[in-house]
Write a protein that binds this DNA or RNA. Structure first.
Lengths: 334, 334
DNA sequence: CTGAAAGCGCTTACAG
DNA sequence: CTGAAAGCGCTTACAG
């Protein structure tokens, strides 16, 4: 068996409570006592049993993170940063992939996964606010992303609409007039895709360029679907001089398809994305995109969640945090 | 408070043990009793407390996964698959990023992280076999990758040497004679880089092409360092007609640098990588690489670890599993 | 087939 | 400042 607090107490000649006091940095311990306990801990190689501590205290020092798929670069890069930020505060992150499946998203809100964590960072893709509110329980919950923007929930997001407008304006200023959009969800005006579409439309409007629904191609947010969407557009004879992928992998897939078909990028068609994943910088041509400030998002998400857990944030309403963004102009759309 | 087993027992009019029996699929329960318990569980919305179960049973139903950085595409794609495979067996995966830091790698072997998990999938990058053996403890441990190949440890890996040789031979057969290698570790002949280098050298030898140390550029395995390595090679006037990146992100970074400098790929210089991350297929030009069979690696890693945990694998020696590979010939090196 | 009891390793009022 | 005791919610021999 592993060394327990009891063993330490015996070795140091003190009671269990005193060992616990030392472990939990209780203030009023005689220095000599503290030293004896610490010596015993070092000598025996004692390591606290987190499971026992959790059972008793109800705290696990773990945070839950739910999104659709860890193999998507944006989520992988975000998860990596979230873990590092959490680690600086003594927390681990337990990841759950929902696969954009409603039942998985809902079950992440309770049951084992919820028990195992002190708070949840949640990027729902399909369930709605009411369903979440009905099952969210009492532990802190912070929404990541923009599927749900609701005063009942804390939320960390970025200026999607503004950023998409800035990107579109950049394309317009470069003389592009027929900007295809890939990755839209038909008729949606909320959610990440919807907000970015709003930005696109506002920029067009401001420039006096009419919106053409024929330029909008729905697609799941992957490389292969981005490529297929461009292929579909070309097959149906739609003319365009730019492609705005609603995220980077869509744009990268689209660019691949264009290049394969001998279309010059950016000569014939400019391509732009959204997310600024590491790959965007090293694509050929490198990808013009929006950097959402992932470091800031990670840092502030963890801070907000830990403030809720620690009771330092007590607002009854949801707190909404919005990170800044930066337009990264690269070769694919100078 | 949450609903406990006690509440269920009371509602069903049975003892705690009977509820536990139902929960753990104990065989000999009277159907009527079982039904009553299940009804009570459903009615009360009871959910087992995993922490309490863990404390008592010593099992956590979590697996540990340690590698350097989740934002590296290979690790992200592998982690995603490992989680899915683990999930099919009722396990979760807790990820720890070591940042290739020796002290983090070592501390993942014991302490909280180890307690929290029933077994460990470990990709060490810097610590050696003896250091691991000294601290590995008694819980199952499966090595992933080839930094350590030691009969004391279970290991899941792939035919690195053979695959690198096959790739090099492909380049040679296409007429390339000066194949630069990016990502080597000076003088190393074990570990992933070392094994792939061995394969490269064997293929050269077999083709009667002399090895030229001037063509070997050390680099960490990232895009930016791959780009910098190629830039360094060109700056020092080394001539080459192909680049073998020891993994895909190195190759992709290298390709980016070549294209920026107006080098035609594959016309002037062929480029090949290793890993077959999703991005390789959609790069422009698409990347010739080795597919290590990530699905197979994920599936077999989880199987082996769970067999150890369940006591179904009892070999005293380490079990070594080697997955197959496939050469993916694409545009960057036809 | 089912029940009563002990105990996993901690934390936390409650005393002193 | 420190100790003795209860208890978090389970599982597991041990009886019967």
């Amino acid at each position: 068996m592993a060394v327990t607090m009891n063993d330490v107490a015996r070795a140091a000649g003190v009671s269990l409570k005193t060992v616990s006091n030392v472990l939990n940095d209780y203030e009023f311990i005689r220095p000599a006592t503290k030293q004896r306990v610490q010596d015993a801990i070092a000598e025996l190689g004692y390591e606290a049993n987190l499971t026992a501590r959790s059972l008793r205290s109800g705290k696990t020092s773990m945070l839950g993170l739910v999104f659709s798929d860890l193999s998507a670069p944006y989520y992988a890069e975000l998860a990596s940063r979230l873990m590092k930020a959490a680690s600086r505060h003594g927390y681990r992150v337990l990841v759950e992939q929902s696969g954009a499946d409603a039942s998985v998203e809902l079950s992440a809100l309770h049951g084992t996964f919820r028990q195992l964590t002190d708070g949840l960072l949640f990027t729902p893709l399909v369930v709605d606010a009411d369903a979440i509110a009905a099952r969210a329980g009492t532990k802190p919950l912070v929404m990541l992303g923009e599927h749900i923007i609701d005063p009942r929930f804390d939320l960390v997001t970025m200026k999607n609409e503004e950023a998409a407008a800035a990107l579109t304006t950049h394309l317009l200023q470069a003389g592009r007039r027929r900007i295809a959009v890939i990755g839209a969800n038909a008729g949606e005006s909320t959610g990440t895709a919807g907000l970015r579409m709003n930005g696109y439309r506002k920029a067009l409007e401001q420039a006096g360029v009419p919106f053409d629904a024929g330029l909008v191609a729905p697609a799941q947010w992957r490389r292969d679907t981005g490529a297929a969407a461009v292929a579909g557009l070309m097959a149906s004879g739609v003319q365009f001089d730019a492609v705005f992928g609603l995220n980077d992998v869509l744009a990268l897939g689209a660019m691949h398809e264009l290049l394969i078909r001998g279309v010059n990028v950016p000569g014939d068609v400019a391509v732009a994305g959204f997310d600024d994943i590491d790959e965007a910088r090293f694509a050929s041509p490198s990808l013009t995109t929006i950097s959402p400030g992932m470091d800031e998002i990670a840092e502030r998400s963890i801070s907000l969640l830990l403030d809720r857990i620690g009771g330092r944030e007590t607002s009854g309403q949801g707190v909404h945090v919005e990170s800044g963004f930066e337009l990264k102009i690269r070769e694919s759309a100078p």
